[in-house]
Structures are given as structure tokens and as C-alpha cells.
């Protein structure tokens, strides 16, 4: 059994790598399941030992990668409280918000042998829940788009500014209408607790979508 702290070299980076890889798969899958983009741009791949749908549109893939590249330093320092995939209608009002609530323990007691396979199992359960979430959600209106929000602290944004990609991919403070939804219906999808991260995923759905 090895005891690691957040200060240990590369530990935060390992957690950020695992979470960002997961979030990339999750975002692609949400966009497919919620029909934000035509199904023709998605291809079946295998992640976490389950089939998932990933986009093959270069611009969209780059956008998702750039977004996560900017969020990664925040996750690394345990400064990303929530990562939210927001689906918006034509008028740019949110209709659905997929909220990933993330928290990391400051002190860890982990066995490196079992760690990765255990985390993979837990993340697989999230992917499976996302792939069937359309059964519990109402259809979205046509012409929806999406954005990704990150809930952090003002001081932590300096970590973000260190990332090279931010120069071509700047971030701004979200408007109230992008952050909050009036009387949303709350649908819990999945919770996980592991040695390295606690995460819960729920969907906030607008009562009247059309």
C-alpha cells in the first residue's frame, strides 16, 4: 500500500489525465445521445471496454480537446468544482445541463495495482448511464447547440492562463442565463467514490423545452 499526497509529483496530473480522458468520451456521447449533431458524424469506438459513439468531425473534436486542455490545470490543482455540459436551444437558453461534480481527497492511500482497473470500472458505469439517459429525458427542440462551463475560483483562473492554448481559446465569465435554469427537473445519473476522486453526475432539465 502506497500513501500519496496531492503534493507528490505527478499525482494531480494523473488524476487530471484520467478525468479529462473520461470527460472527452462523456461529451462526445452526450452530443450523440442528445442529438446535438447529426448521427452520421459519430463512429462506434470502444472505451472503458464498452462501445461509445465518438465524433469524427475535425473542428468539433478540436473544440472539445481545446476546452478540456484549458480545464485540465484546474482539475490538476483540485480547483474545478463542477464541469457542466450545457445544451441550449436556438435562443441560447439552456434546456439541459449535464453536471459533473468533482471532488478530490487531499490525502490518499492507494494501491497502484488495483487503482486504475477500479477507476475504469467506475467510469464505465457513468458512460453506460449517459448512453441510456435519453430514456429519462424529454426530446430537445431542433437546432440545439452546446457549451461547457467550469465552476472554479477566481484565483484558480491564473492556472488556466498558463496553458498555451488559452491564447487562441480564451474564456469568459458566464452570464446568469447560461448558469441558471428556471425550475429545472433534477435527474441523478451516477455517483462514484474512489481513492482518487469523488464524482457525481446529474442532469438539470428545463420543464418546458419548446
Amino acid at each position: 500500500m502506497t500513501t500519496l499526497t496531492r503534493q507528490d509529483l505527478n499525482f494531480g496530473q494523473v488524476v487530471a489525465d484520467i478525468l479529462c480522458e473520461f470527460l472527452e468520451v462523456a461529451i462526445h456521447l452526450i452530443l450523440y445521445v442528445r442529438e446535438v449533431y447529426p448521427s452520421g458524424i459519430f463512429q462506434k469506438r470502444k472505451k472503458y471496454n464498452v462501445p461509445v459513439q465518438m465524433s469524427c468531425h475535425p473542428e468539433l473534436n478540436q473544440y472539445i480537446q481545446d476546452t478540456l486542455h484549458c480545464i485540465k490545470p484546474l482539475i490538476e490543482k483540485n480547483d474545478a468544482e463542477k464541469v457542466v455540459v450545457v445544451i441550449m436551444d436556438k435562443e441560447h437558453h439552456p434546456v439541459e445541463r449535464f453536471v459533473f461534480e468533482i471532488s478530490q481527497p487531499p490525502l490518499l492511500s492507494i494501491s497502484s495495482d488495483t487503482l486504475l482497473s477500479h477507476v475504469e470500472q467506475l467510469l464505465r458505469a457513468f458512460i453506460l448511464k449517459i448512453s441510456v439517459c435519453d430514456a429519462v429525458l424529454n426530446s430537445n427542440p431542433p437546432g440545439c447547440s452546446f457549451t461547457v462551463l467550469v465552476h472554479t475560483r477566481d484565483a484558480a483562473t491564473r492556472n488556466m492562463e498558463k496553458v498555451q492554448v488559452i491564447k487562441d481559446f480564451p474564456w469568459i465569465v458566464a452570464d446568469e442565463q447560461e448558469v441558471h435554469m428556471q425550475e429545472p427537473r433534477l435527474i441523478p445519473l451516477k455517483t462514484m467514490t474512489s481513492d482518487i476522486v469523488k464524482m457525481q453526475l446529474y442532469v438539470e432539465e428545463r420543464a418546458q423545452k419548446t
Partner: peptide, 10 residues
């Protein structure tokens, strides 16, 4: 606490 989003649209 702040909530951020990318300036660019997908």
C-alpha cells in the same frame, strides 16, 4: 467562485 465558458462557439 466564478463560472467560466469558452469565448468561442463549437
Amino acid at each position: 467562485k466564478v463560472v467560466l465558458l469558452p469565448c468561442k462557439n463549437p
